[in-house]
């Protein structure tokens, strides 16, 4: 069961939500990450996502398994988009269903936070002014980067 996966096509939440349906579950929580039209003061035109898929899928599955065991959530799923995305498109979708709402919220929150920090996925922003840059990479390349270790684990 591939509970973590990548797609190059637009993410449609409806069938994903159906995958998480479970008669024993009374709560369902989902998180969608959308492409935003600005970042740190710069107007963004579109985004490009790239992943080291062989490792990211394995690590993504590990994150989902952690969420299941940590919060006792039977069903949790994450789909991440790759390629070129326009403003407003869904970049990532996380859903969790559980007997009660509390665990569903916790699991969905846990998964998106870990996905952002642990998976080898990169985002290139293309700006309105014609510039572009890999998020978290260009400033790391600055000479004083050693003084600003980021949350990369």
């Amino acid at each position: 069961m591939a509970r973590f996966r990548f797609t190059h096509a637009a993410i449609d939440p409806a069938p994903l939500r159906r995958e998480l349906a479970d008669p024993a579950c009374g709560g369902f929580a989902a998180f969608e990450g959308w492409v935003r039209d600005h970042n740190e003061g710069a107007a963004v035109r579109h985004l490009e996502y790239q992943a080291f898929e062989a490792l990211a899928v394995k690590e993504g599955e590990r994150i989902l398994e952690e969420a299941r065991t940590r919060f006792g959530v039977p069903r949790v799923l994450c789909v991440h988009r790759l390629g070129d995305l326009a403003i407003g498109e869904v970049a990532v979708w996380v859903g969790a269903s559980a007997p009660h709402r509390h665990e569903a919220f916790l699991a969905a929150r846990y998964v998106i936070d870990e996905v952002k920090h642990r998976l080898p996925i990169w985002k290139k922003e293309h700006y309105q002014n014609g510039d572009s840059g890999w998020v978290n990479c260009e400033r790391c390349a600055a000479p004083d980067s050693a003084a600003h270790p980021h949350a990369h684990r």
């Binding site: 080291f52 062989a54 490792l55 991440h80 970049a91 952002k116 998976l119 080898p120 978290n136 990479c137």
Partner: peptide, 26 residues
Amino acid sequence: NAEFAEWSQPLREGDTVVFIPPVAGG
């Protein structure tokens, strides 16, 4: 070989190595 590794891990014949820039998923 598609698993996180240490910088000091001995490399072997045929290994596939990937250097992972700061990530930005989600």
